[in-house]
Write a protein that binds this DNA or RNA. Structure first.
Lengths: 136, 136
DNA sequence: CTCTTTGCAAAGAGTTTGCAGGGTG
DNA sequence: CACCCTGCAAACTCTTTGCAAAGAG
């Protein structure tokens, strides 16, 4: 294994990821921490995020608008992705217990994780009248 | 609106997408059609895939390994993504009816679509003993 | 002192875009 | 004939990587 040593920057990145519910991208975290760590490098953010995911301290929520978004909440839960503003909101996961088994029976594989995401227009965008921007 | 004209290449791309259950990426489709259309351009595949999605003739399954994967089956259904070989399999969708309403009530937004995907090791990889390649 | 982590910048990979020429109706 | 579609290649964006210097144990 890799002998992980303490690093002030890494701790700060993980803290920042834990203290937000925005499901930030690498760049979002970077610009947020850039003030506190002027010498922070974007590459470092990417490297640490990869470590978090490898260590199970974070998960990828998927890419939104071409950017990978991360979440420090690794417990299974669903997300609501606003196709209008790109926000990613947490959603109290519907009961998916037992579905894993169902899928395993159907595919013959082993489920390690699942990702449920809803795409639509968030309340804020609905209020701003930005909705249906690209609806059919 | 854009006046869509017929195009042999476009028809072929959509056909290829419809005749496979691999949920191919732009490049997968490109190399598959390159034999039949030696002068096919990758840019054309990208452009047409974007049209299909805009027209509702295809949906994006999400990105796997950095590549966007597409599906001509636009009816809601779940996917099983093998983290070992990158294959994307169709899964008979568990009953998610009513869940949209639940999410809308929780977020105050409007759900336009949902994506349920399971990540794990597929049967083929399990058999090949490639499993747990990157398990914790 | 040894090994991990970082900044910087260049390299990569995937996707998008502009333009001139060919195809469709 | 007008307008859409395509090939080609350059441009872009996001992410990864190599290397020498700085930090942690």
């Amino acid at each position: 294994m890799e002998a992980r040593k303490f690093s002030k920057k890494r701790a700060a990145i993980l803290e920042a990821l834990r203290h937000t519910d925005e499901h930030p991208s690498a760049e979002m975290l970077y610009s947020r921490l850039k003030g506190e760590f002027p010498d922070l490098s974007l590459g470092t953010v990417y490297r640490n995020l990869a470590m978090f995911v490898a260590d199970g301290d974070a998960v990828s929520v998927g890419s939104v608008g071409g950017q990978e978004r991360y979440d420090a909440v690794t417990a299974p839960h669903a997300h609501f992705i606003c196709s209008c503003c790109g926000r990613v909101l947490d959603v109290c996961s519907p009961n998916l217990a037992g579905v894993d088994r169902q899928v395993e029976a159907e595919t013959g594989g082993v489920v390690l994780s699942r990702s449920l995401s809803f795409t639509g227009t968030c309340a804020r965008c609905l209020a701003s009248g930005h909705a249906d921007g690209d609806a059919v």
